[in-house]
Design a binder for these strands. Structure first.
Lengths: 141, 141
DNA sequence: TTTGTTGCAATATCATAGATTACAACAAAT
DNA sequence: ATTTGTTGTAATCTATGATATTGCAACAAA
């Protein structure tokens, strides 16, 4: 089990927008060509990024731009924009309350797993779009 | 998206085995009653725990026991026993190699996300079955 | 008014997880 | 040796969620 590819796709979109917004009109069709998914998926994801205040999309005429500088966009922002707010692990419903383990399993695991999730969020927060752009530049020059 | 509930179920199984192995025969039907899932799911999960060397199951006569002491079983052991070895995030296949972003997106994200996954593994490793049993005892007495 | 685009709904397709059924293999008890 | 209760495993069913696809109204600029 793993997270869907919405997150990598969203990062891909943001990198493309950051890289090309000054040279050409970054449309969902253009992005679909680079990411290689259906344009509607791009538009949907872009809608989430827009709702999160990460990009501005020009309705009608088309094209997208970053709403903030790449230093101010972290992977945590992207994650929150794109993924549901869920627990990392899915608990089984209705464990038997007559069993001491069943009665307590949820409470036992919950805070420990939330801690792990918290660490993951911190890690994502430490990665900025700018750092990815820097790496990208290093790889392409 | 999140991990399936195999992991919490496996922990539940191990806690029950540890708690009851000296008092009664811990069968898949007994466990199914506490966890509240189908006995076949228990047997399947138990098979994974057995293959990972965490429990011994008595074929024929039935009943399970821990193969090691609870101090020597970590949630990382359980995780490896029960979850596929996958990346945390699912990458989109076939990004456009003609685009500098598409050509590099995988390499850009991969090691960063692997690092995050590594932290998660370390966190899981720090949680022993014994610590859960201690908490359980504190809650039930 | 035309053109290219976004936003969104509806539907289709596909993969995966869990539930369920069925049954052979097994070991102990009698 | 037979019975009994259990494990191990395969096959199938169902539900859910993710992505793909189609279609179209709304929009803004030329």
């Amino acid at each position: 089990m793993q997270f869907s590819f919405r997150m990598p796709v969203a990062v891909h979109i943001l990198l493309c927008v950051a890289s090309f917004q000054d040279e050409l009109k970054v449309t969902s069709n253009f992005l679909a060509g680079s990411v290689n998914v259906h344009p509607v998926i791009i538009r949907k994801t872009m809608g989430q990024l827009k709702a999160a205040g990460l990009v501005d999309v020009a309705a009608g005429v088309g094209g997208a731009r970053l709403s903030r500088s790449p230093e101010e966009i972290t992977l945590l922002d992207v994650f929150h924009a794109v993924e549901e707010e869920e627990d990392l692990f899915h608990f089984h419903e209705n464990p038997n309350p007559a069993c001491p383990v069943g009665r307590n399993i949820h409470a036992l695991l919950d805070n420990r797993l939330q801690t792990i999730r918290g660490h993951m969020m911190k890690d994502l927060e430490a990665i900025t779009l700018q750092s990815l752009l820097d790496d990208l530049k290093a790889k392409t020059t």
